[in-house]
């Protein structure tokens, strides 16, 4: 599959001033994101995740290195402002704070806002907005006021905006951080659906290890570089490395790790309660069976 994003040796520093030195936020980052994939990006605060996101949606341009978005090299020496504007149309972003990205007072007007800026004909905007609201399960709120919505609903409206604009890739920058558990579930369900049913490439920046476990792939950033890169199974299979980078693993993995230290054979990569519990129960039975058979007080 063609990569929608390809990064080669990206570096970026925030400029310093009289008092502070420049901060190297990214130091030579390379990766490819296949179109239609679902990638989580983890890393402690200051690890370079958000800087990377800003490069990928072209808010900032890298100091050095090469970046391709949807087949165009935006770092090419002959790339124009126009090329970058074109490339930006393919990548959308949903931020952390729901209140920072709702611009209109009526839900459907908010969803239409981006399309209007793209100069799409009104009849087509109507169709796109209706379809986008249906995709996030907010059709019945189309004519409602945006300020009355819950945080989760506002995030879904923001996602609908990216769908209406036909974004091929959407970056979610801690989009669930401010939501209650139900809001978080709603938004995570919509993100998964967006990826699965509409084929949109998803990049999910998060501090929630359970959310990252839902992705196909996890990239872990540390000190401006890629620290780990693999499937959730591979990445969370190295709990000690995650802890060393100031991160966590899902509680199911942590439990398995602690049980394995005492010789119970439970896999580290079961991320939902049911499969983890089944494996633990199985391991407990195996162990108890063995000790009973070993001549201890069996029943």
């Amino acid at each position: 599959m063609n990569p929608i994003i390809k990064a080669e040796n990206l570096s970026f520093s925030y400029p310093g001033d009289e008092e502070s030195k420049p901060v190297k936020a990214l130091r030579g980052v390379s990766f490819e994101i296949p179109e239609g994939s679902f990638t989580a990006i983890l890393g402690h605060n200051g690890s370079g995740k958000s800087t990377l996101a800003k490069l990928l949606c072209m808010v900032n341009l890298p100091d050095s290195g090469r970046l391709w978005v949807a087949g165009r090299e935006i770092t090419a020496p002959d790339a124009t402002e126009r090329d970058i504007l074109e490339a930006r149309r393919d990548v959308g972003m949903v931020f952390q704070n729901p209140d920072n990205q709702i611009v209109a007072t009526i839900v459907e007007e908010d969803v239409a806002f981006g399309c209007e800026n793209l100069g799409i004909p009104p009849a087509e905007i109507r169709e796109r907005v209706d379809a986008a609201l249906a995709a996030v399960g907010m059709s019945e709120y189309a004519r409602k006021q945006t300020y009355n919505l819950s945080g989760g609903q506002k995030q879904r409206v923001a996602i609908a905006g990216t769908i209406a604009m036909n974004r091929r890739c959407v970056i979610f920058d801690e989009s669930t951080a401010m939501l209650d558990p139900m809001g978080r579930r709603e938004v995570m369900d919509i993100i998964a659906k967006l990826n699965r049913e509409q084929g949109v490439t998803v990049l999910l920046i998060t501090h929630h290890m359970n959310e990252a476990a839902a992705a196909d792939r996890i990239i872990v950033m540390n000190q401006g570089q890629i620290y780990l890169d693999g499937s959730p199974r591979e990445v969370f299979g190295k709990p000690a490395a995650m802890w060393a980078a100031g991160l966590d693993v899902p509680q199911t993995t942590e439990l398995a790790y602690k049980l394995r230290q005492k010789g119970l054979d439970v896999p580290l990569y079961l991320f939902d309660a049911e499969s983890c519990a089944e494996a633990v129960a199985e391991a407990v039975r195996r162990r108890s069976g063995k000790s009973a058979g070993g001549g201890k007080t069996g029943s």
């Binding site: 049911e274 089944e278 633990v280 129960a281 407990v284």
Partner: peptide, 10 residues
């Protein structure tokens, strides 16, 4: 996990 363990007999 604890609730699911109970269902699995642990």
């Amino acid at each position: 996990v604890a609730a699911a363990l109970r269902k699995n007999g642990v």
